[in-house]
Amino acid sequence: MTWDEMVPLLRQGTLETLQMTVWSTLFTALGGTLLGVLLVLTERGGLLPVPAVNKVLGAIVNIGRSLPFVILMMAIIPFTRALVGTSIGTQAAIVPLTLSAIPFYARLVETALREVDPGVVAAAQAMGASRGQIIWKVLLREARPGLVAGLTVTVIALIGYSAMAGAIGGGGLGDLAIRYGYQRFETGMMLAILVLLIALVQVVQSLGDLAVRRLTHK
């Protein structure tokens, strides 16, 4: 395979990988934050203690986290098809990617929120802050460095999962790696994909670290 043949394929694959990663990151950030906040709110001694709800949410998160991605992806094909009309392609891959990343990120959100100084929460309560104000202005705001660090880890995990998704019809760099690198022994292609993936992960990690540094005032 010549360089000229590889470039358009690689460009297309990278775009698809980015597409899957960006969209699933977006949905995960929303869903995971929501779930993480709910986990912290509803726990015993939380701002809105409902231990029963907390137990159910915790169980859902644990189940979600214990399913291997590839299995989850196949298991929810009917759901994916109902949602986006197809079970193959980049768009379809976003569904299982998001579903598997939400519980993962929710736990990271939970940990980050728990690290917020309870003294600051008490101070806000003493000032007469409402629950919503405490969630927005204290918990999520104070936990920002942790939330961003957690999101960075999640994005990198999503890049990895998206390669797996590619292997079963999702497109992207993973798909290229299987079709050219693995099935046709195109070593050059395989190498190029590896380099691209490594570079992508490096860039994400550096951006994440930078953001965390900017947000930390310690």
Binding site: D117, G119, A123, A126, M127, G128, E142
Partner: peptide, 18 residues
């Protein structure tokens, strides 16, 4: 609303680090 009329200071300050 009543709490807003009562100030409180804390041993470990309870300031928002952000």
């Amino acid at each position: 609303r009543a709490r807003r009329r009562i100030g409180m200071i804390h041993q470990h300050f309870g300031l928002l680090s952000s």
